[in-house]
Write a protein that binds this DNA or RNA. Sequence first.
DNA 1: TGCGTTCCGTATCGTTGTTCCGTAACGTCG
DNA 2: CGACGTTACGGAACAACGATACGGAACGCA
Lengths: 196, 196
Amino acid sequence: MPRVKQRTDALHERGLASAMAVLAEEGAAGLTTRTVARRAEASLPAIYEVFGDKAGLIREVFFEGFRMLGDDLSALPAAADPIEGIRRLADAFRQFVVANPVLAQVMFARPFADFDPTPGDDKAGVKVRKIFVRQAKDVVEAGRFAGDPTDIAHVFFAFVQGFAAAESARRLGGSKASVDRRWRLGLNALIDGLQR
Amino acid sequence: MPRVKQRTDALHERGLASAMAVLAEEGAAGLTTRTVARRAEASLPAIYEVFGDKAGLIREVFFEGFRMLGDDLSALPAAADPIEGIRRLADAFRQFVVANPVLAQVMFARPFADFDPTPGDDKAGVKVRKIFVRQAKDVVEAGRFAGDPTDIAHVFFAFVQGFAAAESARRLGGSKASVDRRWRLGLNALIDGLQR
DNA sequence: TGCGTTCCGTATCGTTGTTCCGTAACGTCG
DNA sequence: CGACGTTACGGAACAACGATACGGAACGCA
């Protein structure tokens, strides 16, 4: 055996951590393979060996984002009222997007012309989706909503994603009060409208 | 006076048309200042003189997109029932995003790390926003919805934007039937829930 | 010490955003 | 008609980026 490998899983982790940090601190424009390499104290080819190409690096960020979101949503305490559970889910999603705006863009918009998540990449979001479906199922089984839980979960997910994106882009209102008010109005209406 | 200028408004129009065409045909990745220059039969510096920089070029695409969307929505025939008007608005928005997926991303996501629309750029969407507010006002004045029309308009806009984005990213379902069903379910619920 | 294998990072390539500056076109004036 | 000053144009260059070839270093072993 010749020299010991340095381009290992450890570098993979360091690279991903660097990418997450760069993304949060400098935005999407600052996320270059060079900055990631510098921050991870690795050479440029090392990053390429570990991630394949830039799209591969972004894909890992994409997955990591869904892991974080899944953890956040999993950590939510169960609510006695399943509809209250839906509200908490929506609120936690909103908080995640507000706290990680650029990461959320990587996950739900496509700030990079390179990386375009394929259907295969969508398995990243399966845990999050399951949480939504489970909560929808609870509401339906409690007899509060009528309809297919999967459909209801998709509707809620598209809803919160649209509102969070609008809030993030400052399209939902200028003041926190108006943004809060519109979130409430929309969420209440959607919940009321789904109620049997 | 020396030679006659060629880098005029005419080139601006050609450049914008080229950018729209490149964007639609080759996607965001294909939109480079060089491809736009080539397609507009202009030199690279000519494009830069007319648009300033790449962000300026994208900004024009952004504005053009909102002009197109505003025209689409304006062309909608008035409905006798104001709630039917809301439905038509949602449907027209959806069709626009489906027909112009990349353009819609430029307008509502930020596929380019460069261009980040400032509050000043948001005047591009004022016409579209007005159409939504007007329709919301009609519904409220008809006594069908209760609440502030501006809030209601924002809610509807965020809603349709979220659903259209989800559909565009194939996150709303695999088959047209399921996507249609979820649009219907969400829109019906939102409308029912807002009803007084 | 020398050798073969494997790995590493420097240096490079092609592309893109952006700009400098030499050249050429035009009006004007002698 | 020709020289001149002014202005506009675009070829060519620069910096930064994504991506990679390749020379040489590091290691185990004889």
